[in-house]
Structure formats: structure tokens, C-alpha cells
Amino acid sequence: MAQIQVRDLVKTFKVARRKAGLFSALRGVFHRDYYTVRALDGISFDIGPGELVGYIGPNGAGKSTTIKVMSGILVPDSGSCRVMGLTPWQSRAQHVANLGVVFGQRTQLWWDVPVIDSFELLRDIYNVPHADYRRTLDDLNDCLSLGPLLEVPVRQLSLGQRIRCELAASLLHQPPVLFLDEPTIGLDAVSKLAVRQFIRHQNTFSGTTVILTTHDMDDIQALCSRVMLIANGSILFDGNVDKLKQSYVTEKRLKVEFLHPPHMTPLSDKVTIIENQGNRLELGFATGQLSVPQLVNQLAAMGEIKDIIVEEPPIEEVIAQVYEELGL
């Protein structure tokens, strides 16, 4: 059975409509218009133990609403959600003990005291036995090289250092499920790599199920075997990253270098010439309409080929294209 099971979740919010200007502000004192936003419009998915799932979508798509429902902070209007057999909003205390949550933009550590004090408090809050705590902390310490950071008050940590401590803090009670909400936001390249490496390590060696929301497609590419794309409260795609590309990548690029300037002959109308300079030629072509071997045959007729590179557009562009198609 799936570890996390979500069925037909619906969540709506009521929002007041406000117009600009003094007059409408005055009117607003007496009368207000409301409209409802469907933040979640019937989403369903299953996540198995040990999966590492990327959860992506534009701002306001319903990502954090989903996370909040799954962590028991929000109660949905309808639908069901079970995490390890528990309904989050019905047995909050029991449920959240199975959970580690990191919000990249917010801290769970006590701001003015050394990190280790926060850790010990969390140990007591989650009733972690001392021996287990010691062992977990040692492991986390090794993976995240927290060492000297533990004695420093949180407010004096850099963002990268803080996120490492946040990750450790959320895992002290060894939760089987970990929610990461934009854990790499604002991090420098080195810190990002360290965080990704740690997430992969935790997922592989402890079997922790990880759900990761992010806007950084490199996170997805580097970590996730599976990706869910949400927009306007519905899940538009659920599958592995390659499949996402197959579904949405409609154009590939082919760069070819000839030994001599090629004899240009008309190419199929499915091909667009992006660049044509001396020995080099860059083409774009629609996948599914034309295969790479067919194209290479045509090109071989134009001259002796020195090198060929076939490129897919970066995932960033794919996602941007998806959003654009959806009119987001």
C-alpha cells in the first residue's frame, strides 16, 4: 500500500476583491465582493515508501496548499489523504511525529540560542530517547558537517549553514516522511550541491520518503526520479522526468560541423535553420515528425560531416514552455 495516498482533494479560499482609489475604498467600508479560489481542484496521487518526488508548479498553483494539507495544518473541503494510514488533520500529534518538514524561507530553530540548544529541545518535544538522539545527531553531523555550527546562535549563521541545520533539525526524530519546501532557495552553488547531496544520501541510506517543492529545475534533474506538475489546482503531469520531457519537448536542436562549407540543399519543411555560419549549421526540428537518422541522412548529402550534437532544450525551458502553453 502506498505510504501517502491522496484522493480528490479540494480546497477553496474566499478572497475579497478590492479596487484601487479612495472612492472604492470608501465603498468597501460598507460593501465587499468576494470570490472563491479553488486552490486544489480534486488532486489525487500515491507515493510509495522511499520515493523522492519533485513537486513543481508556478507560484500560486497549489503546491504549498497540498503540503499544508498533507502535514495536517489545513483541513481540505473534501477528499481524503492518508499518510502512513493516518488522516493528518484528524490525528495531528500522532501524524506529525512521522513527519519532518523544512521551509526554506522560515526557520524552525530558536533564533537567539546556539543550534545545539534547539536540537536538544526538539529531542524533548519529539520524545527521542537519548541514545537514538546521540546516534542520529552523529550521523547527521557527519553528512552535513555541522561540527562548529552547533555552538553558534542561529541568527549568526549564513543561509547555507542555516539550511544544513534545518535539515538536521527536521530529521532528529528520524521521520519516515520528509517534506522540503524550497530548501535550496537563495543558496549559493556550493551550498546547493551540498544540500542535494544530503537529500539523496538520506533518501538512499535511510529510505526516507522525500517530497520536494522547488522552482530550481536543477534540483529536480539532480534528485527526482518522479515529478508532479501542478497548475491551477490540478495535477497536469505525474511521472518521471524523461517522460515529462517527452510529453512537452516538441523541438530538439541539432548542431552539425562539416569539414568544408556545405552545399546547401533545401531541407524538409519540418526543419528550421537557426544558424548557418561557415562550416557550422544549427537546426531545430520537431520531434515525432522527423527522426534524427532521417535528418542526418539529408545532411550527409550536403558534405562531409565532422561532428554532430543533438540537444534537448534545458528543463527550465521545457517548464517555461509548459507554463506558457497553459497561459500561466
Binding site: 478590492r18 482609489g21 479612495l22 475604498a25 470608501l26 468597501g28 467600508v29
Partner: peptide
């Protein structure tokens, strides 16, 4: 004017 509008919103 701005303050006034802001305050009116907070009826």
C-alpha cells in the same frame, strides 16, 4: 490619502 485608503480597508 494613502493612509486613509489603507485605514478604510481595515474597517
Amino acid at each position: 490619502r494613502m493612509r486613509f485608503i489603507a485605514l478604510l480597508q481595515y474597517r
